[in-house]
Simulated scan of single mutants.
Amino acid sequence: MRKFIEPFLHILFWALVFYISYSNFGIKIRIVKTEEGFSYFKEYNRVFLAVTLLHIFFKALLFYGAIYWVIPAWMKSKNKTRSTISLTLWFVSTLIAPLSLNYFILNSFFEHPIQKGLALIGYSLFFHFVCLFIAFGYRSTKDWFKNEKLKNEIIQEKLNTEINFLKAQINPHFIFNTLNNLYAEARKHEDKTVADGIAKLSHMMRYMIYDSNVEKVTLAKEIQYLNSYIELQKFRFSEEDPIDLKINLDIKNPSVRIAPIIFIPFVENAFKHGIQIEHKSYIHLSLTATDHMLVFNISNRKFNTETIERNSGVGLTNVKRRLALLYPDKHQLEVEDDGDNYHVKLTLQF
């Protein structure tokens, strides 16, 4: 039922505009003197019915063009001068067009159209400004409600994530104490490889449990987490295995802040479905970041096709939803799959 309220209000608004406009210009009240006094008669002018309909059409064109095209472009534009000119041109064109058409209509059917034309011009200009003002208010209110809804969804999503994590969580202090003990034992036996692996696993768990439990983290922390994950994955294969692993990082400002754990689902999928020790495999990862934009690319061979099709759909859906909540209108996710190779490109705007 609620979804019909907004269209109903739109129809009611334009019906009211039509009534006010036609009452002012299309209905003439005549007073006739009779034996009993005075009688009042309403005369409905069909010509002004056409004039009023044109008036409504172009006002609606101004209104809906403004709220769905001109005003959003004006709000997002960095060059306010150009967008203000576009808004002004849209305003003027939707004003002049009906006035010109109405002038020809009035000139064709009235002997003295100037008096009625001047009144119509003044009314049309006034109501054009009113429509533009209402359009700004309508668009701002609609965006505010949309942003509030997104904020509530993000909060709910975060709460659900925390609850699910708590359900699956073993006492983290026990885990960290155990890892520290294993790390000490590995150092005691001078097993540097195992010690480094335990240290990286400890860092990853600490990041996931504590450091990532915030709205945003520095890009440097996120990269450190990715590096720890990749280094642990390297334990699965040796240098002799036919695996081509390339990591390319070009970070201009490592202190820029982003949403945590945003890249790891793509990296996990690449290692899970793109590596087979006995086959020639590759994973190419690149991350480029400036103060205003970040571009993440990862490509891999595609093995376990049935497993990917069965499992990656849900994961990709969750990633898309999270990006839509965290970076609305500020991200672009491209996925290419040719059957043998898999490529993901994620672009974020800060």
Rank of each mutant, 00 (worst) to 15 (best):
F58R: 00
E309T: 11
K42M: 13
S39T: 15
L316K: 02
D337Y: 05
L346D: 00
N79C: 14
E111S: 13
T34F: 08
E162K: 00
T317N: 10
K80S: 06
F271K: 04
Y282G: 00
G313L: 11
W144V: 08
S140L: 15
N147L: 12
F145N: 14
I31V: 15
S23F: 10
E157V: 05
V214L: 05
Q349I: 03
I154D: 11
P328M: 13
N213S: 07
G137N: 13
N253K: 12
N107I: 09
S108F: 11
D211N: 09
S108I: 05
R139N: 02
T317H: 13
F237P: 02
G26K: 01
Y183W: 11
N164Y: 07
K59M: 06
L106N: 05
E162Y: 04
P254D: 10
I198K: 04
K221H: 12
E185K: 10
S286P: 01
I175F: 13
T305N: 15
A168H: 00
L89D: 03
I56T: 05
P265V: 03
S93W: 14
P98I: 09
S312Q: 13
D340S: 07
T161C: 00
K59N: 05
I121M: 12
T34A: 05
A199S: 04
S255Y: 13
K246V: 08
V194E: 02
T218R: 06
L249P: 01
L101E: 00
F13G: 03
D250I: 11
I85L: 12
K167Q: 00
L182P: 06
L294P: 10
R310L: 08
G117A: 14
F165C: 01
F91M: 11
K234L: 00
L346C: 12
S21T: 14
H10T: 03
I243A: 11
P260F: 12
E6R: 14
